[in-house]
Structure formats: C-alpha cells, structure tokens
C-alpha cells in the first residue's frame, strides 16, 4: 500500500510540476492543485498507514490499544485541504478576472510587469 501511494504521490508531483511549466494559466492552477494534493497525500502516507484502528479509547480502558492510526496527520491534511481550497478558489477568481481584462490565457502575454 505504501509503495502504491508513493508512486501516486510521485506522479502527482510530477504532473503538477509539468502543468506548472505549461503556458496556459488554467493549467497552472490545475498544476498547483495537483501539487497540493500530492503533499497532502505525502503527509497521509508518512503518518504510517493503519487500517481500521481509530485512535479512540475504548469504553472501560484508559489508553488506546497499540497499533492505532495517528490522528495528527489527518488533522494536518484537513487544515491543508481547507487552506488550499480557499487559495485555489481565489486563484480561479483571479485568473477569470485576468482573462476578462487581458483576453488571453497565455502566460507569455502576461509579462508587461516584468520589464
């Protein structure tokens, strides 16, 4: 399972970076989304995968029996998902506005502020 996820994470990073390097603004946003999903999955995998063992103390005991899922990475991922949701939504509004204003989604045409 870890191996599979590692491959998935790798491909997410790779496709994300590839998309970032394209000239289309839309693909840029997709690339950013893929990258952030890749890092979320990385955190998930790195917290060790445990199946069906929630970290909840059973009735009448004082601690959780030993192999249990680490709740922290999931909390981290949730936070990161919320944040990237907000940021990507904003980025979408932004490129929409930019497209209306500039009339192109080609990043090569968006370099008037670089000179």
């Amino acid at each position: 399972m870890e191996l599979l996820l590692a491959i998935v994470i790798g491909s997410l990073y790779a496709t994300g970076l590839y998309m970032l390097l394209r000239r289309s603004v839309v693909k840029l946003i997709i690339g950013l989304g893929l990258l952030s999903n890749g890092s979320n999955l990385l955190i998930f995998t790195i917290g060790r995968l445990v199946r069906g063992r929630p970290p909840i103390v059973p009735e009448g005991e004082s601690s959780v029996p030993s192999p249990f899922a680490d709740p922290l990475p999931q909390a981290l991922i949730l936070t990161a998902i919320v944040i990237s949701f907000g940021v990507l939504a904003f980025a979408l509004v932004l490129i929409h506005r930019a497209y209306q204003k500039v009339g192109t989604d080609d990043l090569d045409d968006l370099k008037t502020t670089d000179m």
Binding site: L20, V25, L28, L32, L35, S36, G38, S39, N40, L42, I43, I46, P73, L76, A80, V87, F90, A91, L94, I95, R97, A98, K101, V102, L107, L110, K111, T112, T113
Partner: peptide
Amino acid sequence: LEGAIKYVTLNLMASTLFLTAVGL
C-alpha cells in the same frame, strides 16, 4: 492582475514545498 498571478503562483509553490517539508 498580472503581478498577482506571478505572486500567487510562486508563493503557492513555496507553501507546497513547506508543507512537504513539514510532512517529511
């Protein structure tokens, strides 16, 4: 808007790298 696109992209890249490092 042009400035913002560059700013947003690179800063999001940085955030993702940071997040990756935090995960590791």
